[in-house]
């Protein structure tokens, strides 16, 4: 893809300057970025506020308190900051209902990009929260 085409495509794909300000819009943004480690100081100030109109911290608090979104640390950055990844809670909700094969998890996560769902699943694996009834995923 030529650089100028990519430069036009990326902001639109990320919904930079989106008109929507709802909590559903925020959930979509988190789903798109889930598993990505970002400095905690940057997530709300630069990333979410550019993608959700009239972003307010209360919106994210609401999603976290509902269990829709989970945050996980990804290492410190000096004494005042650290990297954090937002993870959509739908995988956890599904696994809390019953052990599941991947297609069921993918559906529960809302579909979309398979790699994004896999990244989130493996975040949970490496966090020690999720396991598999075979050793095969680790061997592969």
């Amino acid at each position: 893809m030529p650089p100028e085409v990519l430069a036009r495509f990326l902001p639109a794909w990320h919904g930079i300057g989106a008109e929507s300000s709802s909590i559903d819009r925020l959930a979509d943004v988190v789903f798109q970025l889930q598993g990505l480690a970002l400095p905690a100081s940057v997530i709300e100030r630069d990333v979410l506020s550019a993608r959700v109109r009239d972003y307010r911290p209360r919106l994210l608090d609401e999603l976290v308190s509902m269990g829709e979104v989970v945050w996980a640390g990804r290492g410190s950055l000096g004494q005042q900051d650290g990297r954090v990844a937002l993870i959509h809670g739908r995988l956890r909700e599904q696994l809390a209902r019953r052990p599941s094969f991947f297609p069921e998890l993918y559906t529960a996560a809302g579909g979309g990009d398979t790699d994004a769902v896999l990244d989130a699943l493996w975040d949970l694996v490496w966090a020690g929260e999720v396991t598999n009834d075979t050793f095969a995923p680790l061997r592969a």
């Binding site: 991947f102 998890l105 699943l121 493996w122 396991t131 095969a136």
Partner: peptide, 11 residues
């Protein structure tokens, strides 16, 4: 990531 194997569950 391998995915088509086994069943996933909470630890």
């Amino acid at each position: 990531h391998p995915r088509a194997v086994g069943r996933w569950s909470l630890t």
